[in-house]
Design a protein around this nucleic acid. Structure first.
Lengths: 146, 146
DNA sequence: TCAATATTAGTGCATATACACATATTATGA
DNA sequence: TCATAATATGTGTATATGCACTAATATTGA
């Protein structure tokens, strides 16, 4: 197959069709919005997510937490470090000597209380930009993937 | 506002609703599939995307390339490094001494030719898992975001 | 009991992401 | 012409991501 054939196929089949390309692009776009909004509070969007889930599922093991978030276990372990350093969560062993639990601190809850209005505003702004119908459709699709 | 109120609001409004959380989770899931499939060829899904776009838009400046891919400029510059090291693309200045252009090499085109069937298979497998309707809906939604 | 197995967490390595800031080059207008 | 503005790339720092591999602890079954 010659070069022009390859390029033609890439143009026809890949460009504008690749799910990996599309979802990564959209993820970057949306992440930037949330990161920017949360920046004054020293949180990223991802950290806000981890903090929220930890606050709702207190004292789950790190492995279980990774499952819930849909994040590779070792990725989660590293991503918790900044939250731990900032005193927003505590990582400790209890009962078992191997399993560890993540627990939100009172400071962590305070941060969530502070950032909740900002999250609401960001979420609403995005929803407004996309329109109700697209918003619905996007959420359904993303739920199906995960 | 007390802790229980906060947690209740997080449960009601944030959990399962946050667009940032959902799209990042879905992005991780899909990326893992493409990364895994392309691994034998030494490419990530993201690299496959960059390679494809460079092959179709030859000799665009790095800034323009970043725009097309929807990636922060400095991120793109760093992400190109592995491709350059592997000899799949060339980064060089032409005409202007400040602007740089990315050009795909013949080796890069060969790699694309090799990986194209794998990409097709991965894309088809994902589409099959999601079903035609969800697939359509996801793509529409992601296009709207970007 | 205790050896084999399963479970849980952690490290090394490489890529991915973007903001703040810096540097280099080109274009513009007084 | 030449100072200023605009444009283009690059670096420092920090977070995000996951695979391969390792280490420690708990469980199970002969």
């Amino acid at each position: 197959m010659n070069d022009q054939d390859i390029i033609e196929q890439l143009r026809q089949d890949v460009a504008g069709q690749c799910a990996c390309q599309k979802i990564r692009k959209a993820s970057r776009t949306i992440t930037r919005r949330y990161d920017d909004a949360l920046k004054p509070f020293g949180l990223t969007g991802n950290q806000f997510t981890m903090l929220t889930i930890i606050s709702l599922a207190d004292k789950v093991t790190l492995s279980r937490l990774a499952e819930i978030i849909g994040m590779e276990r070792t990725t989660l372990i590293r991503n918790l470090k900044p939250l731990e350093r900032a005193g927003l969560v505590t990582i400790a062993t209890e009962e078992s000597r191997r399993a560890k639990h993540a627990t939100i601190s009172s400071q962590g809850l305070n941060t969530l209380a502070e950032t909740l209005p900002v999250w609401r505003k960001t979420q609403a702004s995005l929803k407004a930009d996309l329109g109700d119908k697209t918003w619905q459709v996007v959420h359904q699709g993303l739920d199906a993937i995960s």
